[in-house]
Write a protein that binds this DNA or RNA. Structure first.
Length: 862
RNA sequence: GCCGAGGUGGCGGAAUUGGGAGACGCGCUGGAUUCAGGAUCCAGUGGGGAUACCCCCGUGCGGGUUCGAGUCCCGCCCUCGGCACCA
């Protein structure tokens, strides 16, 4: 009995792959390429099961496409800048650089041990200055084109991370990384003009339909938040200025009874001062800033401050009072809103609170509205009333008509606004890419000269104990000369948001050694990424930034590409149920007795089993990949990851499940190794099958059907779980055949060889090591990793006899084995001769016969 | 509240196009092997009734279309995810 020793086999073949460099991607414009990419990891220390799942899926695809003859690019690198490195440095007294590179070394070993088919010659880390220097150049060029700019605004500040966050990085008012509540601060910082691409980013989503998960497309669409409407000007009474509002409901213009301004609106401050309300206004504005979170969640009560000023309605000439209101956001539209209480719920609530008039201008299709008794705003379409010459128009039509009228008068125009805001990229952090500008006393803000790049992040920095960036205190870094006038200047000490690095790494993988930022030809050959794989948590953040950055680089002339990722697979999380003891809190599975009681300190309390959730250290429900590899080998871990669930769903970790996967591999190993000697010299069957026994013909049929099924599962759906199930069925079938068919049967060995070769080939992208071993045991000279994917023969796969289901009134009563091409008459005759069928037809009149060739026959009787 | 995905045995999950519901695996039950346990192998395994042939019920709930519905249509319930004073 051959014994399956995964560790031995796996390290052996990993060495062979390494020595022969078989996964090296070489540009070859004559061959069709396939670029598989998994989202690169942050080098946090060790890989977790989520990585294993993500990278296993990618690896299967890369290996499969290689077998299909594609020139495959499958690279790996490190998203190496970021805050955890600084935190670790504080805790353990190691420099972020050392910590990061050590982690990379460890994690690279882990990935190699899993046998992933990366082209390691293309590896890089984003904290290498040879990588980020190019990013600095991009920035300078964006600056020249106005795609990067500096401004002072209210920003999201995480007090725990000591840094600013982009809107995309604030989740429910808290920091996406540490969960601390985010506060508002007025600060200067650098921004990327992603809003200039809002329409294109939205439009581009259409071409991704069917290739990206619908969910991700929807999330991006909502995030960009396009809305069509109009800008309308309201002159101020007694002043030369005017207020410009944005509205999506120009049809309700005649219903305006007041104007609401954001407290951050410049005119709000001015009007307050003019009215002698300076102190009150300032207090109100401060309160609004503090309330920001509640305001954004919509839980804060509406509050306003009458500015004792009036605007003039552009059509009716009426005076409308102006308020500063806490719910009006300066960042959206124009920061000013025309309030129509009758037809907007927010304005309605505000009007009720401050006793402002409610004027109905839209009548519902049925019934009428009475401002006195209304309990909520009527926001649906209807017919315009009390609207001067526009009365009587359907509101949808009225929108157009009013805007046209305003355009003619020159006091309004059609306008589209987006919810998307510009991307704030300044971070007050040390471990990031320096922003290459200096502040010169004479010249102001000056970009570094391209030939002076990179602006290297100094590695001699002493980290601040409070967790602040040491850069501003680092004289040798800060003190510099102006690239323009040579005079004394101060260096920018903010670094880039680390999402900037991950916005273009997939391009650099095409030419990691290029001296220029990107080699147009090589990028053109390899890009777009044909299949991108990663977690859903980046549905907006990374994926939106990357789509934006790719377009920027296109406009800067570096690439000829709009969408970087042709297909996207968002894999589910790896989850596991946590255990909790009423006395000890979260406990490890080892601390639970078979009876379900707590073993900690002889506790004995009944343990509560939580519902499966994302693995986390604090819940004690993590499974360590190293431990699993040690116990079962990489192939088993990979197999389980693929088999337990389809990739887009969450995968529930199961100790029993991985045992099952291991058991299957042991069975396959023994099935083949125990016969390998006898089969080595045998050629796979090539005849037409006429000389074979029915059992052997059946085995060939099953084999070819399996090849067909696995190919379709991998090609069309990426459903590895059903592909594996199909191979398991084939293995079961082979074992059954071996039991029934004597070895001397003519053709036995060659048919067996054909089937076993298929098993090995079909499994090889998923469990490559064991398959190399079995492949060579079967006498193959080449590596299975370099073999061609097997093909199926429709003729062989076709069933000679099929089962026809016989129904009476839609209920199954019998089934018949008949030749595949049996016609209706034959089937009918056979079915009616069945005793079981006759019994159910007895005493009834046959009304109708439904015949589905090759499937079923249904007798309708009554 | 709005948008999206989903609800199938004890569990993870299958089911091309409307055509035998529950593939494959886990678990469980019985048996073989063993001094014993483990491992392995064999058989069974949706529920109920009969325990022989068979019959009835069954894919969140209620209706509908159809010879036939897990699959299509209408109305609800629940779970998960995203968005949510964006004018």
């Amino acid at each position: 009995m051959a014994e399956y020793r995964p560790e031995e086999i796996e390290t052996k073949w990993q060495r062979v792959w390494e020595e022969r460099q078989i996964f090296r991607a070489v540009d070859d414009p004559g061959r069709p390429k396939y670029y598989v990419l998994e989202m690169f990891p942050y080098p946090s220390g060790r890989i977790h099961m989520g990585h294993v799942r993500n990278y296993t899926i990618g690896d299967v695809l890369a290996r499969y496409k290689k077998m299909r003859g594609f020139n495959v690019l499958h690279p790996m690198g490190w998203d190496a800048f970021g805050l955890p490195a600084e935190n670790a440095a504080l805790r353990h007294g190691v420099h972020p650089a050392d910590w990061t590179y050590d982690n990379i070394d460890y994690m690279r070993r882990q990935l190699r041990r899993l046998g992933f088919s990366y082209d390691w010659t293309r590896e890089f880390a984003t904290c290498d200055h040879e990588y980020y220097r190019h990013e600095q150049l991009f920035f300078i060029q964006m600056l020249e084109r106005g795609l990067a700019y500096r401004k002072k605004t209210l920003v999201n500040w995480c007090p725990s991370c000591h840094t600013v966050l982009a809107n995309e990085q604030v989740e429910d008012g808290t920091c996406w990384r540490c969960g601390t509540e985010v506060t508002q601060r007025e600060m200067e910082g650098w921004f990327f003009r992603i809003t200039a691409y809002a329409e294109e980013l939205l439009e581009g989503l259409k071409r991704l339909q069917g290739k990206w998960p619908e969910k991700v497309l929807t999330m991006q669409r909502n995030w960009i938040g396009r809305s069509e409407g109009a800008e309308i000007e309201f002159p101020l009474e007694g002043l030369s200025e005017k207020i410009t509002v944005f509205t999506t409901r120009p049809d309700t213009l005649y219903g305006v009874t007041f104007i609401s301004l954001s407290p951050e609106h410049p005119l709000a401050e001015k009007l307050a001062e003019d009215s002698g309300l300076r102190a009150e206004f300032e207090a109100f504005r401060q309160r609004c800033r503090r309330q920001r979170r509640e305001i954004e969640e919509g839980v804060a009560e509406k509050e306003g401050l009458f500015l004792r000023a009036y605007a003039i309605h552009p059509l009716t000439g009426e005076r409308v009072p102006i308020f500063a209101a806490n719910f009006v956001l300066m960042e959206y539209g124009t920061g000013a809103v025309m309030a129509v209480p009758a037809h907007d719920q927010r304005d309605f609530e505000f009007a009720k609170k401050y006793g402002l008039p409610i004027k109905v201008v839209i009548r519902p299709p049925e019934g009428d509205l009475d401002p006195e008794t209304m309990e909520a705003a009527y926001e649906d379409p209807g017919v315009m009333v009390n609207s001067g010459p526009f009365s009587g128009l359907p509101s949808e039509e009225g929108k157009q008509k009013i805007v046209e009228h305003l355009e003619n008068l020159g006091v309004g125009r059609r306008r589209i606004t987006y919810r998307l805001r510009d991307w704030g990229v300044s971070r007050q952090r040390y471990w990031g890419c320096p922003i290459p500008v200096v502040y010169c006393e004479r010249c102001g803000v000056v970009p570094e000269k391209p030939e002076n790049l990179p602006v290297k992040l100094p590695l001699n920095a002493q980290l601040d104990e409070a967790g602040r960036s040491p850069l501003p205190q680092l004289e040798s870094f800060v003190k510099t000369r102006c690239p323009r006038c040579g005079g004394p200047a101060r260096r920018e000490t903010d670094t880039f948001d680390t999402f900037v690095e991950s916005s273009w790494y997939f391009l650099r993988f095409a030419c990691p050694d290029a001296r220029e930022p990107l080699d147009r030809e090589r990028v053109h050959y390899w890009l777009p990424v044909d299949q991108y794989i990663g977690g859903i948590e980046h549905a907006i953040l990374h994926l939106l930034y990357a789509r934006f950055f790719t377009r920027v680089l296109r406009d800067l002339g570096y690439v000829q590409l709009d969408e970087p990722f042709e297909r996207l697979l968002t894999q589910g999380m790896v989850i596991k149920e946590p255990y909790r003891c009423p006395r000890h809190g979260w406990i490890y599975p080892e601390e639970v007795s078979p009876e379900g009681t707590c073993l900690k300190e002889g506790c004995g309390e009944k343990v509560i089993v939580g519902r499966p959730e994302k693995m986390s250290k604090s819940k004690c429900n993590v499974v360590d990949p190293d431990e699993m590899i040690r116990r079962y080998g990489a192939d088993t871990v990979r197999l389980f990851m693929l088999f337990a669930a389809p990739p887009e769903k969450d995968l529930e970790w199961s100790d029993r499940g991985i045992e099952g996967a291991h058991r299957f591999l042991k069975r396959v190993y023994q099935l083949i190794m125990n016969r390998a000697d006898k089969l080595r010299e045998v050629s796979p069957y090539t005849g037409d099958g006429k000389d074979l026994s029915p059992e052997l013909r059946a085995l060939r049929r099953k084999t070819h059907q399996t090849i067909r099924r696995v190919t379709r599962d991998l090609e069309e759906r990426l459903h590895f779980n059903t592909a594996i199930a199909a191979v398991m069925e084939l293995v079961n079938f082979i074992e059954d055949t071996l039991k029934e068919v004597p070895e001397e049967t003519p053709g036995f060995r060659s048919v067996l060889k054909e089937s076993l070769r298929a098993v090995v080939l079909l499994l090889s992208p998923m469990t490559p090591h064991i398959c190399e071993e079995l492949w060579s045991a079967l006498g193959e000279e080449r590596l299975v990793s370099e073999a061609s994917w097997p093909e199926w023969d429709e003729e062989v796969a076709r069933e000679e006899e099929i089962t026809i289901v016989v129904q009476v009134n839609g209920r199954v009563r019998d089934n018949l084995r008949l030749p595949a091409d049996a016609d209706e008459e034959t089937v009918k005759r056979a079915a009616l001769s069945s005793e079981r069928v006759r019994r159910h037809l007895e005493g009834k009149t046959l009304r109708k016969v439904v015949f589905v060739p090759g499937r079923l026959i249904n007798f309708v009787a009554g």
